[in-house]
Write a protein that binds this DNA or RNA. Structure first.
Lengths: 338, 338
DNA sequence: CTGAAAGCGCTAACAT
DNA sequence: ATGTTAGCGCTTTCAG
């Protein structure tokens, strides 16, 4: 079955190719009669305009590129799905790449997106450094950064992480916890920096000392690393009053490690995660978590990007207010326990 | 920053455009000297060949299209991520669309993929009917169907659902359960049909009567629907010995509904899910599940697709053997309980 | 080994 | 209101 082109339609309808093109693009100056003819021909032939050719001829591609570290991570998965759905509403397609947290892959991905002539990009960089490295590349093509790992001078949509971490930490302090351990995140991540900032502010304000366990390696499985750290900790008999985990997935790993060591939350320690991903709400998990409003973030990012694509100028920045979803992994520490 | 084209490179290197093209494509008949020149020029200009133009000129797009019902579903999310990773290894990009289980969206998606000139497609259809409807469309472009909702005469990669369901049901029977309820799935889904087949075979073999609760509506949230069914059931005081849930996500909903009604697994009933998704392994869930080897499925599908793209003929079919992952949502029913 | 020229499918002035 | 004519950036015979 050969590809059906605009010529075929033109031939069948007995008009010129431009006329067909005009009909396809809703050009006003077309007689109703010919429009019918053409439409009928399209129908008969199952004609679908070739996006490549169209793009080449100067129209946009109606495609937006999404670059994320790992779309199987529920957090990104939600973001991507929301974005895809929102983009589809506006007639945009989405092309997706995972960088697996590798700055080199990230750079390649951005280049390939450009080669693909995406009309715009949604990027969640590995780190501000990696973002700045390829920041110049898009040259003109609109770009919104997702999450917090971006350098200065660019448009972004991010959750207010500092505030989220601060409020979570305050909550733990109010519950009477004093030895509060922040666990997880990769050194160099701005998200991490922001969350640590909120955490530290709370610690300082309450006269407590920060206790931070952060991954220094730049590649490899962060979750596994964190799980191992937690295990080691419990094995050594060290149990904080509470954990502020870098993410829900990490919180779950910590809880897992704890179970193995015969401990559990909230009995032996309280724990809060970040992101409020899908399974945190399961009664069996009931993880108290700082919610990032992923769906809203996905939509906002696409909306902003589309604004830019359609001529919007200037840098935009959306700071989404996080929300502490209280469930059942934290409990009040009684005075005598301290 | 203007787009840099092959002319710019040609000009800088002092050669013709064809020569640049040859270098870019690793054509053998090129003197080392000119190759160096050209490569240097590319480097200097940050030249990246335009994928659109290249596609238009007859080369493939090195893009594969993925059409799934819902990529935020952990099952598809895993599949997509595996596929994306595998495709990337071979230098292929991936473009993704969610159909949200709407046959019309599905058809549109397939058409758009064709318009995008994808070199091949991975499709997880809503139902065999919807697949057959657009089955003719791809006309020549290679296509692998994922999962079980495909009609006859097409290449596919699927898990052996019948066997999986059969073995799961047998396991429940061995545990001493007799009132075993199959809950979930959408009428018309072939996956459902296959699972039911396995379930029924086991029931019949053991002289038990099937008890099936299946969603008849063709759109809308399946998970919510199932949750509601389970709630209604518990509210009415009906509690099976065991559930065979259509999927893990549905199993979790059932468990949730149970908790609300003051019941829990495996105390009050046993339950097995399908898919062994990410969170089923969490100790807090510990859901016994029929594992679908999603990662392997993703890779196999891409591999087969690439074989086809590179000239492979004929229909392929991979039936992946499922595996029952025993965790802690099932228990032996004591004789006196019967 | 390299260049010139034709064309992939479509759009966008410019004519008519 | 419609047809004509150039390209868009690249590959690919076909000559040299």
């Amino acid at each position: 079955m050969k590809r059906v082109t605009i010529r075929d339609v033109a031939a069948l309808a007995g008009v010129s190719r431009s006329t067909v093109s005009r009909v396809m693009n809703g050009h006003p100056a077309i007689s109703d009669e010919t429009r019918q003819m053409v439409l009928a021909a399209c129908e008969a032939l199952h004609y679908v305009p070739d996006v490549m050719a169209r793009a080449l001829a100067g129209q946009g591609t109606h495609t937006i590129g999404i670059v994320v570290p790992d779309s199987s991570n529920p957090y990104f998965s939600a973001l991507c799905t929301a974005a895809e759905a929102c983009a589809a509403e506006y007639g945009y397609r989405v092309i997706l790449t995972n960088t697996l947290h590798d700055p080199e892959d990230e750079r390649d991905a951005v280049e390939r997106m450009i080669a693909q002539r995406v009309d715009g990009m949604l990027i969640s960089a590995c780190s501000p450094a990696s973002q700045e490295e390829h920041g110049a590349l898009p040259g003109g093509i609109p770009c919104i950064y997702w999450g917090n790992n971006h350098g200065p001078h660019c448009s972004f949509v991010e959750a207010d992480n500092t505030r989220g971490a601060y409020e979570a930490a305050q909550y733990l302090v109010c519950l009477g916890h004093r030895k509060i351990c922040f666990l997880g995140g990769r050194q160099g991540s701005r998200t991490l920096a922001l969350r640590l900032e909120g955490y530290r502010r709370s610690m300082t304000q309450n006269g407590l000392s920060p206790w931070e366990i952060v991954c220094q390696e730049q590649t490899g499985g962060l979750k596994d690393w964190c799980g191992a750290q937690a295990s080691a900790m419990f094995q050594a008999g060290i149990v904080p009053d509470a954990f502020l985990a870098y993410s829900d997935t990490i919180a779950v790993r910590i809880i897992e490690a704890a179970e193995t060591a015969g401990l559990s939350a909230p009995k032996d320690f309280s724990i809060i995660g970040f992101d409020n991903i899908l399974f945190s709400r399961l009664p069996q998990i009931g993880l108290t978590s700082v919610s990032q409003k992923k769906f809203e973030a996905g939509r906002t990012a696409v909306t902003r990007l589309l604004e830019k694509i359609n001529g919007g100028q200037g840098e935009t920045s959306d700071l989404l207010k996080p929300e502490l979803i209280v469930r059942s992994t934290c409990r009040k520490r009684k005075a005598k326990e301290r």
